[in-house]
Design a protein around this nucleic acid. Structure first.
Ligand SMILES: [Mn+2]
Ligand SMILES: [Mn+2]
Ligand SMILES: [Zn+2]
Ligand SMILES: [Zn+2]
Lengths: 148, 148
DNA sequence: ACCCATATTTAGAATAATTCTAAATCTTGA
DNA sequence: TCAAGATTTAGAATTATTCTAAATATGGGT
């Protein structure tokens, strides 16, 4: 029983996490999660839709949005908003920050980040801090060399 | 000559900065800048449009976007993208970060931030870092007390 | 002051991104 | 087996942003 489970080491985890947020594990949520993990980049909802559709042709755009929201809500995916234009989704739940190239719009994971602790940020009374998002802006290697 | 210049201490600066980026000072750019500074909040382009329109009824939405882009480009306004939905604009050019309430969507300036220096972030070869954007996520005092 | 080249503004259309709606389908637990 | 509730679906609707092409404004050189 449970054959192939080790092919997708994160799947049991996915179920647990969804359940923890009162959400069910569905084939669509699994699929969306899977296409995100297959290619660890930062696709838009539309790109996720196209990838998921190629494996599950009946899936709809609304469902992709629903699934992405569910996965974000239960902490399996991060939502990344770096500019005007479509929101991106990041399946890497390690602590990391994002480098955004203001020139070409590409996004890179940077495996360093600032945690609520080592930032000595003091918030006014009453605020409850959940997490810190750090976005690095600048030029990617390609654009930097072209800019010269 | 130059009567009233001290009423708008930032205006000469605005002209200089626009010029520095090869942009002209126009009544519309002045107006957009002014409505942003009058109320130091984080309005969407649409809200800026409505405020500017009340003082300059002929201004168009396309112009508001153009002006906001010009002001961002020359460093007089910051673009703030915190979630899906409309981009916000911040006229406070002091170093600061943004607190975003994930519950109600309100935005607060937090007068502390992480600079490229005091972050010991090391980027892979070739990246050129321009600035670090820090977004604090959590609950605002109102929502935190309701959540209890 | 007049002219030109260029920058900017404008309304509206077009596109892109996201949300909503209501009906169909699935799941779970009595 | 049944009912309640969750989820998915297609498509319409809404919202946000960008594009287009024509009109207007501006600044520099005469
Ligand atoms: Mn990432
Ligand atoms: Mn601000
Ligand atoms: Zn680049
Ligand atoms: Zn709130």
């Amino acid at each position: 029983m449970n054959a192939g489970a080790d092919k997708f080491p994160s799947e049991s985890n996915l179920n647990e996490r969804l359940a923890h947020s009162g959400l069910r594990l569905t084939p669509q949520r699994q699929q969306v999660h899977e296409v995100l993990r297959e290619k660890m980049d930062h696709p838009t909802a539309d790109q996720v839709f196209m990838r998921a559709k190629s494996k599950m042709p009946e899936i709809s755009m609304a469902t992709v949005y629903n699934c992405l929201d569910a996965l974000v809500q239960c902490g399996m995916v991060r939502q990344v908003t770096l500019d005007r234009g479509a929101t991106r989704y990041c399946p890497n739940m390690q602590d990391h920050s994002h480098f955004y190239c203001d020139e070409c719009g590409s996004v890179y994971d940077i495996l360093q980040t600032i945690t609520p602790e080592d930032s000595d940020i003091k918030l006014p009374r009453g605020f409850r801090l959940k997490n810190i998002e750090t976005n690095l802006h600048g030029l990617c290697p390609d654009c930097a060399s072209k800019a010269k």
